[in-house]
Each structure stands twice: as C-alpha cells, then as structure tokens.
Amino acid sequence: MASQGTKRSYEQMETDGERQNATEIRASVGKMIDGIGRFYIQMCTELKLSDYEGRLIQNSLTIERMVLSAFDERRNKYLEEHPSAGKDPKKTGGPIYKRVDRKWMRELVLYDKEEIRRIWRQANNGDDATAGLTHMMIWHSNLNDTTYQRTRALVRTGMDPRMCSLMQGSTLPRRSGAAGAAVKGVGTMVMELIRMIKRGINDRNFWRGENGRKTRSAYERMCNILKGKFQTAAQRAMMDQVRESRNPGNAEIEDLIFLARSALILRGSVAHKSCLPACVYGPAVASGYDFEKEGYSLVGIDPFKLLQNSQVYSLIRPNENPAHKSQLVWMACNSAAFEDLRVLSFIRGTKVSPRGKLSTRGVQIASNENMDAMESSTLELRSRYWAIRTRSGGNTNQQRASAGQISVQPAFSVQRNLPFDKPTIMAAFTGNTEGRTSDMRAEIIRMMEGAKPEEMSFQGRGVFELSDERAANPIVPSFDMSNEGSYFFGDNAEEYDN
C-alpha cells in the first residue's frame, strides 16, 4: 500500500510504541512475548500442572481467558453494579484439565481477579502490559475465525453469508486497541457500523446529549479505520460520505453494504499476525530463551520457528480426527482463516481442507461434555516452508469459486491468482447506482469489472525454506488448481455463540 510509510507498523501498534527502528520493534515485541511466557509459567505453578498438562491447549485457553477477564475493567465495573446470582464479580476462573488415573478430569478453578492481575503485572515488570493482553485477544479471535462461520451475524446486519472472507476479527472485544483495529476485516468494521446506525434509528437519543457526542466521535473513528483499509480513492470518498452524514440511517447502511461487497474484489488491507497460545510461549521462556534479547516478529519467520520446536497437546472428542484438529489450530496460529487453501497447503506441506470436510468441533470443551471418553493427542503445528504475512489485500483475480465463501483475504505475501467468483459478486451490483453516491458507485463498479483474471497478485513473492531466515531465496510455489480455494466452501461450520 502506498501510504505504508505514514502508518505505524503493526509491531508498533502491538507494543504501543512511538516510531521505533526494526531492532527496537523486535525487542519490544519480544518483551511482550516474554511477559506472556513468564505469566503462563507462574500460572502453571499456581495450578500445580504437570509439564504435559501445561502444554494442553484447553488449559492455555482457560488461563488466557482468566487474565483477560481480570483486566476487563468495563465488564468488571458492570458486574459490580449489576450483581447477578451466583456470579462473584471479583473472581474469575474456568475449567482446568488434569490427568488422573490414566483419565482426563475437569476441575473448575476460581481465583481472585486481583490475584491474577498481581501475577500478570509481576510477570511483566510491574506494568499492565496491555500489548500482551491484546495479543491474547487476537489469538482467540484468530481461533474463532478458523472455527466458526459468522453466517447468522452477517444475515442479521443485512449482509450476504458468502462475504465471510471479510469477517476477520469479528469476535475481537471493543477494547483491543490499535492492534485489534489493524486485524479487523472490512466486513467486521461494516458490521460494527451498521449495528451502531441501527441503534440510532431505533433509539432517538442515541446521537443526542453528552453521551451522543461520545457516540458520534466513536462512529467517526470507526469510519476512519474502515476508510484506511480501502485502497481505492472511490471507496475512500464513499467512506467520507458515510462519516460526514448528519443523521446516519438506511442510506448509510446501503452504502456500507455496497462497500463491503466491493471489497470482495477491490480488497481492503487487513493486517495478519501470528499470535500463538500462551502454552507455546511459556515452555520456550522456561527453556531459557530470551525473546527480548533475541527479538521477535509476528509477521516473519519467528512464529514458524517457534511452532517448529513446540509440543502442544489437545483434548480430542471420541469421533474427532486429531489431524483435522491440528489443521484448525495451525490455521489459527498463522492467522489464515480466509487465505486461499492452495497457498496454505503449499506452505504447510500437507493438504489443507475446507472447514466442512474437517471432523472436528471447536477447541474448547463445553462444561456439560462427558470427560470419560476424552483422549488427548499432539497437535501437528509444523510447516514445510515459511512466508511473510501481508497486510495488503493483493490485486484481484477471477477463479472458480464456491457456493460458500466467494473470495479470499490473503494472509501471506505469496504470488498467486486470487480466487473470487466474479459473476456471483457482480450480480449483486445491478441497477442500484442512484442517489448521492452514484458517481462513486459507478466508478467502483467500473474498477471491479476491469479486474483481470490473468493478473498475478504479489508478483514474484515466494515462500522460503525454514533454514532461509533472511528470506534470501524465494520459492514461487505451484498450486494444484483442481483443489478448492475457499475454506468455508459450501460450508456447515458451527455458528459462533458468545
């Protein structure tokens, strides 16, 4: 993207840094990872977990959730003011799984939030270390993106479920800051804005008074975040219109849905970061690795190297396929839920299948599930090659597409044709070009129609051997075009429920 120079890199967003050079960025990201790792080690000690239990991804998720809940100030305040039966607002906890007599047992633990905050700050040299908290939120978000298709949420806001490739980060909490905003897809931002506008339509006082002023500035800020994701002048001009509207209503909703559809071809720039579970960072720190000293990046080879040398386990339900569970977590670790499966298959070195073909449910185990038949197995999170994460949407291309997802959002900077089903997408653009945004709409449609099938995206960008740390010898991959490109292809993934 041309304006790259004016933006802070995501590592800076990730670490609240002012302008830093590459070495400083690597050190501050490393410091953040160190903090998460030290916190995780301490929690495993508190909970008396064995090494194996500490490497269980379900335990990692519970521990991450506990610290996120302990620092969720708004919710904590709300819980104190609106006490609900049987919930102690000062405590947080969740299921911890232990191996007892050759069987997995679930144990519900409860801790004072104050105590968890103390352990977290102690692991982070006394700081609140917001960057580390956001990092864990993005890992949870990436896992949700890989596990669930947001059909219901899309339909509720009037969008087409086939636009799911635009929904990265749709389950990120509001408090995820600049680093969170960077990884949100165009569809996620559109959905947040539509929800806001709908509230304004239904509630006369939404934009009024002292609160209304705050609401208005939040609305304009979200519009600017979305505008910054678009790469064409016409899309940005249309966002200006939406932002400046005196009284946002149905016309703005129409414009936003139009823009979301246009992003299936004229893709937005959305950041991709490899955020790993805390149970990967903990053992690495415990083994003596100093992330701050060595430096770390979320968008280069580092996460690949770390996963190459990590042992992570997962509980497996009786009829689940461990290899499929591994694929789910591998995609989440690489922030690749909406990437082209052919690119992923090449990088991973084994075939990556669409969601609907995987015999696996989510990673988390519900409290009512029976533990008797639970097994555990090693997650295979290694890769054959590594590639640089991208934040450009890439230019655009036609490809055989599917009944489910009709476009992709690249996660890796790797040369390819970008699949999208042009006739299906263009069919949504018939007729409606009147109104105050008509010239911009016409211009956007013209650009979409001009998108050429034979153009290559990320020209000359390749993948790298894991021994090639400096990215000196790019390998331009070859793809098996007979395979499906979309992950949520004609899909039956479970729906995400809060």
Rank of each mutant, 00 (worst) to 15 (best):
G5L: 01
T6E: 00
Y10T: 08
E14K: 14
Q20P: 15
N21V: 05
E24S: 05
I25G: 14
G30E: 07
I33H: 00
Q42F: 05
M43P: 01
R55N: 06
R55C: 12
M66C: 11
M66V: 11
S69E: 05
E73Y: 13
K77A: 12
L79Y: 10
E81W: 11
K87W: 04
K91D: 02
G93Y: 04
R99N: 12
R102F: 14
W104I: 12
R106G: 08
R106I: 06
V109E: 09
Y111N: 07
I116R: 02
R121K: 13
Q122N: 04
A123R: 10
N125H: 10
D128G: 10
M136A: 09
M137G: 01
M137P: 09
H140G: 11
L143D: 03
R152I: 05
G158L: 13
R162H: 05
L166M: 15
P173S: 12
R175S: 06
G180Q: 07
V186T: 14
V186R: 01
V186K: 08
V190L: 02
N202D: 02
D203E: 11
G209F: 09
G212Y: 06
R213K: 10
S217L: 14
S217E: 02
M222I: 09
N224I: 11
N224L: 08
F230T: 12
Q231R: 14
A237P: 01
D240K: 02
V242H: 05
E244H: 00
P248I: 04
E254I: 11
E254C: 11
D255K: 10
I257Q: 04
R261T: 05
A263C: 15
L264S: 06
R267T: 02
S274P: 06
L276Y: 08
G288M: 10
K293Q: 11
V299F: 10
I301F: 11
I316T: 11
I316L: 15
P318V: 13
P318A: 12
A323S: 13
K325N: 11
Q327G: 10
Q327S: 09
Q327D: 12
V329C: 10
A332P: 04
A336H: 01
A336C: 08
L341C: 11
R342H: 04
V343D: 04
S345K: 03
S345G: 14
G349A: 06
V352W: 05
S353C: 08
G356A: 09
L358P: 09
E369H: 14
S376T: 08
E380A: 05
R382N: 15
R384L: 05
R384H: 13
Y385F: 15
T390S: 13
T390P: 09
N395E: 02
N395K: 11
Q398D: 01
Q405E: 05
S407P: 00
A411E: 06
V414S: 01
Q415R: 14
D421R: 02
A427Q: 09
A428E: 02
F429D: 01
E434F: 00
T437Y: 01
A442Q: 00
E449L: 12
P453W: 15
S457L: 14
G460S: 14
S467P: 01
S467D: 11
S467G: 13
D468K: 08
R470N: 00
R470T: 01
V476I: 00
D491W: 14
D491P: 00
E495R: 10
